[in-house]
Nucleic acid binder design. Sequence first.
DNA 1: CGTGAATGCGACACTATTGTGACAGCGTTT
DNA 2: AAACGCTGTCACAATAGTGTCGCATTCACG
Lengths: 229, 229
Amino acid sequence: MSGAKLLLVEDDPALSELLVYRFQNEGYDIRATPDGDDALILASEDTPDLVVLDWMIEGTSGIEVCRRLRRDKTTAHVPIIMLTAREAEDDRIRGLETGADDYLTKPFSPRELLARVAAVMRRVRPALAGEMIAVGDIALDPAAHKVTRLGQELQVGPTEYRLLQYLMESPGRVFSRGQLLDNVWGTSSEIELRTVDVHIRRLRKAIAVEGAADPIRTVRSAGYSLEAV
Amino acid sequence: MSGAKLLLVEDDPALSELLVYRFQNEGYDIRATPDGDDALILASEDTPDLVVLDWMIEGTSGIEVCRRLRRDKTTAHVPIIMLTAREAEDDRIRGLETGADDYLTKPFSPRELLARVAAVMRRVRPALAGEMIAVGDIALDPAAHKVTRLGQELQVGPTEYRLLQYLMESPGRVFSRGQLLDNVWGTSSEIELRTVDVHIRRLRKAIAVEGAADPIRTVRSAGYSLEAV
DNA sequence: CGTGAATGCGACACTATTGTGACAGCGTTT
DNA sequence: AAACGCTGTCACAATAGTGTCGCATTCACG
């Protein structure tokens, strides 16, 4: 499991099924539901990396789903791509107003949607889109699952790798231990906060190379951040 | 029988015959049928690598064939090139919506279609385009169905061959066990993930030669990749 | 300077993941 | 019918990774 988590909200069974196959084939971890209320529950249970949202759906309407996703803290920043009917200009505008990141008018080809999703993912979570990310002298290649520093390949364990990737996605930003546990370890983590310290230490050791400073900054009583060196 | 397997669904006998001749000449393993239902049966019996599908055909319509191909797990990912009448814009759009990968409007020259097919094949499965691929000191010849390392011919079983070919198509890239099952074994596989490990081991043993390192990298909790040695 | 809280660090038991040899089922060939 | 090659699973061995603990060290603040 390497791809980004998608949530598809689409009430046309044929289209939904088709898209699920296509996205799975591209390596995405996609779940689908035809129902707006259900979508909100799914999104809150396991925050997706991106939501594809049909405008016309059963239950809570697309625009309402969009609005509520934005209201909830855990999903407020999740990118949303809206699917709208062809001539519904008003809908499109209102959709973007409500906070959608992109839209696609029906009919569209699966490939078009794939391209849009990939584009948004590249912008928001480059590493999940398979894009190489670099911070200072450290480079991370998600496709090859490799980390290099100053051209030197580093040996990084699974958890340290995920931790590093997460830190690299927002360089300079300070994350609390709780945030790191939620985003790197996963939702249902009943893990000691201090465990984060240990993995930070292991990560520091793993990315240490001759003649390069420690890029991980400890912010006392706040958390850690990765600085460009 | 070396080239990629094509399935042509075309009810104009003259055109069909011409295309079959041309594609066979190019080394493709092509079968043709004028009937939509027949096409579905042929496709399920022996999954083709690509389908060329006329929009207007007898029996089940083109769009329906397209949709059903996508619905069936074993054929869901097979690229489809649609042949449409010149002015049928709506058809084209609906075709793409239904999951076709590319289209060609009649009339077209056989050469055009050959180019499209080759382009799609190169994108999807480079080795199936009949091109020799080499990674490090390993060379795989799809035409001759042979694998050599350091000039030495290797004895590789069928599954190991497909596995190696797939890994060689994206050297350095890490694939999860699930991805490998989907792409090497086929989408309908209800097979244990650990089975991949066993075949990786068999492949490792098969491609081991004196004085050469193991090119297969195990990425713990992620999958495997083939590195250029 | 003290002092308490926060963080760094090494060790350790435990768990999860992967490597490996063996085996039985199956279809094909001899 | 026997022999063979290939396949998918299994059980077990070998590793690698994980979470906690206890203690050392550092830091902010009076």
